[in-house]
Simulated assay, not measured.
Amino acid sequence: MQRYDWGSYDALPRLTGRAPGDQPEAELWFGAHEAAPSGVPAPDGDTDLAVLYEANPEALVGADAVRLFNGRFPLLLKVLAPTKSLSIQCHPSREQALDAPPGTYVDNWPKPEAFVAITPFEAFAGMRDYDEIVTLLPGLDVPELSAIVEWSSGQDEPAVALLEALLTLDLQVRNSLVRSVLGAISDRDDDPAFAAVRRVAQDFPGDIGLVVLLTMTYLTAAPGDYVFVPAGCLHAYQKGIAVEVMANSDNVIRAGLTSKAINIPELLRIVRPRSEPVRRREPVGRVRDYGSDTDYFHLYAVGSGSEPTPIPGAGPRIVLSLLDSSTISSGGTSLELASGDGAFLAPGEEVTVEGTGTLFVAATG
């Protein structure tokens, strides 16, 4: 469990059948990332998935996955429960992570990611088309913002130039600009982003990220909807509950709306303004294949049902039961998973699931 200040006090406890505690709970991790590997109960003493993987990688994930992922455990599955905006952030590609100065990233792996909404899930993801930005921002009638947009439009990469101009403003100029922009949208609802930005401003007053959000695309994913966020895609998740799958990385570069360290030069190096999220509606059927937009992972879900159904995917898989219990079985062995319980399936295991819960399945791509 990751207890960040943007998390919810009751969403994850309610989802996993626990009483709320005195700290917010933001992310529940399932995997073998070195920062927070999942615990594994064992008769001779509890251990964790990272220890088991290090002891015998091929036995755990198979020789193919060890080769394809250069010896790194391939997947990380999470449940997210934000109640206020996450930072404006971007994740690197594999090449960008390797090319970065030492100490820039916590690991040398890319972090493409995707989520499926459990409740309505709000996010800013991807940048608006620059022509739309040129229409929207000057239309706020804030002269200093219009001047920045006009200057940026003459640069080789206008969207990146605009981000750089906003993020590197002198503090006094920045504060004045944010006040003027918030005043300009205070009674406007002709763009769905305006209300969201006003809400974020309550938690981050004066942050230049409030203006940056207006250059981004605001979306709401309905329960069951899938959103893929590729490397280089600027984003800031807002609120709701979602299941998230990603390559096994915790690499984040932040540029605003956070008390954590920001790295504007690195964000400007890795951001890709035309890197856009991929959205898909919930597939029909008990076994739901959300498709794969990357070689790193493939996400499925299996809905409730009393008949044993084969768990989809091949190779190593992490499965997670939510919304009620699920029973997974292989041969003569069964394991009951309450809502919030996860299990790891080694490659080659033929496993079925039945029960009243929804089983999310993270497989390699």
Results as ranks from 00 to 15, higher is better:
R279Q: 15
M1K: 05
E132S: 15
T83F: 10
L49D: 06
G355N: 12
A159E: 10
S153F: 07
A81D: 03
T47K: 07
K84H: 14
P230H: 05
G303Q: 06
G256N: 04
P41W: 08
A81M: 09
G365F: 02
L268F: 02
S275E: 10
A11V: 10
A65H: 12
P37G: 08
F73S: 02
A26D: 12
K111V: 00
Y226C: 02
S38N: 10
Q23S: 15
A55D: 13
T352K: 09
G365L: 03
D207H: 04
P308T: 08
L52I: 05
V245W: 05
R281T: 15
I253R: 05
E144I: 06
R174N: 13
N248K: 10
D107L: 06
D5G: 12
S186R: 14
G39E: 14
A65Y: 11
S87D: 12
L77Y: 01
V361N: 04
P347E: 02
G340C: 07
E350A: 14
C90G: 09
D46W: 08
E244T: 04
T16C: 13
G303L: 09
L77G: 04
A165V: 00
D170Q: 10
R286A: 08
S325I: 04
P158A: 01
H235K: 04
E164K: 09
H298Y: 07
D48T: 08
Y9T: 07
F228E: 05
G331K: 07
L182H: 07
Q238A: 15
T104S: 10
S146G: 15
S180V: 00
G332H: 02
D99K: 10
T215A: 05
L359A: 06
Y9P: 03
L12N: 06
V211S: 02
L257C: 02
S292Q: 14
S326V: 05
N248P: 11
